[in-house]
């Protein structure tokens, strides 16, 4: 079952197409990463999914129901963690969560229970009565998340939830995202931090100029540019290094030796470093350094869009 289906959606502002004929599906149980530079159309897409903007063209379905026809159903099943802190400074942490959860129709003891649960979940249980003014950046971010999850949505959309916070809070938030996912939530995650996306997302889409230019698991994405990795091994002496023997190791595509550096090209998905090292030891080569360069998302992004994610 797809939690989210976007079909040929276009959003134009005047002449400018912020989202351009985009199609995308998010399956249940995924942590779906949304990668794109500023202005690539991520936020516009997210805003359309959460009914903040209306699509100019195309259909969006949440749990199989069109959001234009069943807005309440769609909204009730989505929790959005906005990029900017969206909390009231004059309300305590508890009141903030309670207010937003109340908007989703929770009442009475259930509302209280879910509010407390959400605060516990983000580790602010003991700060329930404090005002956000006294919170650190990370704590505010966590409260920002709590406000979005108290009504137990099926789909949680997190728009840059870790901007500008300390590593500790970031780890905490990443852990929470995983935990929410284990509890059955499907998550859409956008971030400027490639490592975060690589670490937690099960599927990733790269967005540029309102279009999805690549989509898949991180392995699939990495394979877009190349399916080989470079292994460079520095040796003290070129003599006795059995280049031919190295070539016969499974996965090795090419091998050559160049100025004391064995340069191997290997299939990226095969882990053959052990065999290579063993072979070199058998041939009594004197290894000085080993360096492996596998393709990463950053380079994939750079190759496909011509710019860095944080440009």
């Amino acid at each position: 079952m797809n939690v989210l289906d976007i079909r040929n959606v276009t959003k134009t502002f005047g002449d400018f197409a912020a989202v351009d004929n985009m199609s995308l599906s998010v399956r249940e149980g995924e942590i779906f990463g949304f990668l794109g530079a500023n202005g690539a159309g991520k936020s516009t897409t997210i805003h359309m999914v959460s009914s903040l903007l209306k699509a100019t063209k195309g259909d969006i379905e949440i749990l199989g129901k069109n959001i234009a026809k069943f807005p309440r159903f769609a909204k009730a099943n989505i929790g959005i963690v906005p990029q900017d802190l969206a909390i009231y400074e004059q309300l305590t942490a508890y009141e903030n969560v309670r207010f937003f959860a109340g908007l989703y129709g929770l009442r009475g003891s259930l509302l209280q229970e879910r509010t407390e649960e959400a605060l516990e979940f983000v580790g602010l249980g003991d700060k329930a009565k404090s005002f956000p003014k006294s919170f650190s950046g990370g704590m505010k971010r966590r409260l920002n998340i709590a406000c979005a999850i108290a009504h137990r949505p099926k789909l949680i959309i997190m728009d840059e939830p870790t901007v500008g916070i300390d590593p500790h809070s970031r780890n905490y938030i990443l852990q929470s995202v995983r935990k929410l996912n284990e509890m059955g939530c499907t998550i859409i995650y956008t971030s400027h931090y490639m490592e975060e996306v690589e670490e937690i997302c099960t599927r990733i889409a790269i967005v540029d100029h309102g279009k999805i230019i690549a989509e898949g698991t991180k392995e699939q994405l990495k394979a877009i540019v190349t399916d080989t990795k470079e292994i460079w091994i520095g040796v003290r002496s070129e003599e006795g290094v059995g280049i031919e023997a190295l070539r016969s190791i499974p996965g090795i595509v090419s091998a050559r030796i160049d100025d004391g550096m064995i340069k191997l090209q290997s299939k990226a998905e095969i882990n053959n470093l052990n065999e290579i090292i063993q072979q070199l030891i058998r041939s009594r080569a004197d290894i000085r350094s080993v360096e492996e360069q596998a393709p990463n998302l950053e380079s994939v992004f750079l190759t496909l869009t011509g710019r860095n994610l944080r440009d």
């Binding site: 002449d15 400018f16 197409a17 351009d20 100029h209 690549a214 394979a223 877009i224 540019v225 190349t226 399916d227 190759t303 496909l304 011509g306």
Partner: peptide, 21 residues
């Protein structure tokens, strides 16, 4: 590339902040 063929035409001109199709 491994999965794609990519052709890029780029120039060093004025460009445009928002590209109108």
């Amino acid at each position: 590339l491994n999965r794609f063929v990519q052709s890029i035409v780029s120039d060093n001109g004025v460009g445009a902040a928002k590209v109108v199709k």
